[in-house]
Structure formats: structure tokens, C-alpha cells
């Protein structure tokens, strides 16, 4: 009897609190799989943000902590120094990371903290009911941009990977998509690579995952995936923006 697929050991058996079809659940699962496959569930500390994934401390089977909005990379930095042999990851949404937590993100990256940041970009504030996020698309509606995001007034969607890739020190930065099985499998590889780099104490890894928010986009799960493919991917192109291991191999 061979198990082809089942809930990974990196997740607890708690039922996820996300809306039907929300891809947070997929992000959770591939992180849980990666932890199981790297055999680090008992060596990892996960950090839950404020946002839809605030309850993540109930969903991952490793040690967990819930921290103030935007401050996960700073908390991870403190843990990095206190528990050098652990793998530390933060799990953050676009409001948590790219709005209130921008400084913490940029400086953790610049210090090449040996942590993984899993950044779920669905271009909206989900938990609080659909407000505009730094990654909200131009003219995209949100409860705080009822006439659509006015780029002249509130700026263009923030491309975190590209921004962080201008820094010298971060080790690995990739943007992936969760918008199809093929994309999810690729995303899983990126997540596993990030956690592996941490296990090998290589430095700062960030995997941005383009995701959906059916409830606050006002679309059903399938339609929101189509919308994201059509509208999100052009603004947030997937790809590797930094991979120190690859760069060093290439320069050999």
C-alpha cells in the first residue's frame, strides 16, 4: 500500500480557517510538505503575522509564535541569534510585509538574516475585509479605494522581490505563483529550496507567492484564479531574482 498523497506532517490536523478556495491553504501545505521532507519539523520555529494567517500558529506542526503586525522579520532576527541551529520562517501577507513591515523586511534582508520569509501576495487586506494593500493593482477596487486604486494618488503596486533584489546581501529571492497545479509544484520547489538554504545557514530567503482572495475580490475561487492569471502575473512576474548559490556556481 503506497501513499501517493496525504496531509503533510508539517501541518497539524487543525481545520484551516481560510475561506473556501483561498490559496493560503496551498501555501501552508507546501511549507508543511517541505518541512516534513527536510525533516526539520522539530527544528523549526514559524512566525505568524497579523492578517488572515494570524491563526497559522494552530496550523503548522513546528514551534510557533504570533507576533505584532509587520514585525515578524524582527522577531525572526531575535530568534536567529538566540537559537542559531533552528530553521526560522515567517509567514506574512502583503499588508504585513509590504506596508507596516517594510522596514523590518528590508533590514532583515540587508543583514542577510538566515530566515525564510513566505510572502503571500493577494493584492488586498483579507482579514480586515478588503482594504487596499501596497500590492493592490492600478484601478483595482478595494473598500478603501472604492473608485479603484488611483496610481497618481496612492502609487503603483509594490514589487517586493525586485526591490529587495537590489540589495547586495540577500541570498535567495523568488516569486512564484499558486495559480495552477504546475505553478504550485514549482512553488513547492522554491519553498523547499529556501528552507534547505536556511538549514545550511546560507542566509536570507524570500519566496513571494502570487495568490487570490475570492471573498474580497468578489469572485468565486475559480474565477479569482483566472482573474489573477490575467491581471496579477503581468504586474508580478514570476521568476528568480536572486540565488547566491546559482550565481556562485555560474561564476566558477
Amino acid at each position: 500500500m503506497k501513499i501517493l498523497a496525504k496531509r503533510p506532517k508539517g501541518l497539524t490536523d487543525a481545520r484551516l480557517t481560510y475561506c473556501p478556495g483561498c490559496l493560503h491553504g496551498v501555501a501552508h501545505r507546501i511549507i508543511g510538505e517541505a518541512m516534513e521532507e527536510l525533516d526539520i519539523v522539530e527544528k523549526t520555529i514559524g512566525i505568524a503575522p497579523v492578517g488572515c494567517s494570524v491563526f497559522a500558529y494552530n496550523f503548522f506542526a513546528c514551534d510557533m509564535i504570533q507576533v505584532p503586525h509587520g514585525r515578524a522579520p524582527a522577531v525572526a532576527t531575535g530568534m536567529r541569534r538566540a537559537q542559531p541551529d533552528c530553521v526560522v520562517f515567517t509567514y506574512q501577507g502583503d499588508g504585513d510585509l509590504a506596508a507596516i513591515g517594510t522596514a523590518e523586511t528590508v533590514h532583515a534582508a540587508n543583514r542577510n538574516e538566515n530566515i525564510s520569509i513566505f510572502f503571500i501576495n493577494n493584492a488586498i487586506y483579507g482579514m480586515t475585509g478588503g482594504q487596499m494593500a501596497p500590492t493592490t493593482l492600478p484601478n483595482m477596487r478595494a473598500t478603501t479605494a472604492p473608485y479603484g486604486r488611483d496610481v497618481a494618488d496612492m502609487g503603483y503596486p509594490m514589487r517586493v522581490c525586485e526591490m529587495l533584489a537590489t540589495l547586495e546581501t540577500p541570498y535567495y529571492i523568488e516569486r512564484v505563483s499558486l495559480l495552477s497545479p504546475k505553478d504550485i509544484l514549482k512553488a513547492k520547489k522554491a519553498v523547499k529550496k529556501a528552507l534547505k538554504y536556511n538549514k545550511e545557514k546560507k542566509g536570507f530567503c524570500l519566496v513571494e507567492m502570487v495568490s487570490t482572495c475570492p471573498t474580497n475580490w468578489g469572485l468565486d475561487p475559480l474565477a479569482s484564479i483566472d482573474w489573477a492569471k490575467k491581471n496579477m502575473l503581468p504586474v508580478f512576474p514570476v521568476g528568480v531574482f536572486k540565488d547566491e548559490a546559482k550565481r556562485q556556481e555560474a561564476s566558477k
Binding site: 500500500m1 503506497k2 501513499i3 501517493l4 498523497a5 496525504k6 496531509r7 503533510p8 501541518l11 481545520r15 484551516l16 481560510y18 478556495g21 483561498c22 490559496l23 493560503h24 491553504g25 496551498v26 501552508h28 501545505r29 508543511g32
Partner: peptide
């Protein structure tokens, strides 16, 4: 599956 509901053996 976003909710890890499926097992295949």
C-alpha cells in the same frame, strides 16, 4: 486542494 482534504493511496 487548499485544505489538505484529499488522500490518495
Amino acid at each position: 486542494c487548499p485544505d489538505g482534504a484529499i488522500t490518495i493511496v
